[in-house]
């Protein structure tokens, strides 16, 4: 598994598209920098069992009630998604 980036870490809160705050240290960190080992993974669609990757930053949400199933994209945060099921 690739090393976790801050922007994929649960305790990172984005300030903007480039940087955020590491809640565990209180420090401002860059979004695309690697987080220290052991950091918890942020629930995102790409980490969900219900996400079917379609390539080119797109996919399908298998738990969608729509017909056909509604799309999803791997980078979307799923902290509030009641259908989220961690695959990691």
């Amino acid at each position: 598994m690739e090393n976790l980036l801050y922007r994929d870490a649960r305790n990172y809160v984005p300030i903007d598209v480039t940087k955020g705050i590491d809640h565990l240290t209180g420090q401002i960190v860059m979004a695309d920098k690697e987080a220290p080992n052991g950091y918890e993974v942020m629930p995102k669609c790409k980490n969900c069992k219900n996400f079917k990757d379609d390539g080119e930053l797109m996919g399908i949400c298998e738990s969608s009630m729509s017909n056909p199933k509604f799309f999803a994209y791997p980078d979307m945060v799923a902290v509030t998604c009641e259908m989220y099921s961690n695959k990691l």
Binding site: D16, V17, T18, D32, E56, L57, M58, F71, Y73, P74, D75, M76
Partner: peptide, 28 residues
């Protein structure tokens, strides 16, 4: 203002920055 795209950030309308990972979804 994000007046120009840079790195993994796309400038939208010369004002807003959006991560490149979000752009295909925006267009869809």
């Amino acid at each position: 203002n994000v007046t120009k795209s840079f790195g993994k950030v796309i400038s939208i309308a010369g004002k807003f920055g959006m991560r490149q990972e979000e752009i295909p979804a925006l267009l869809k």
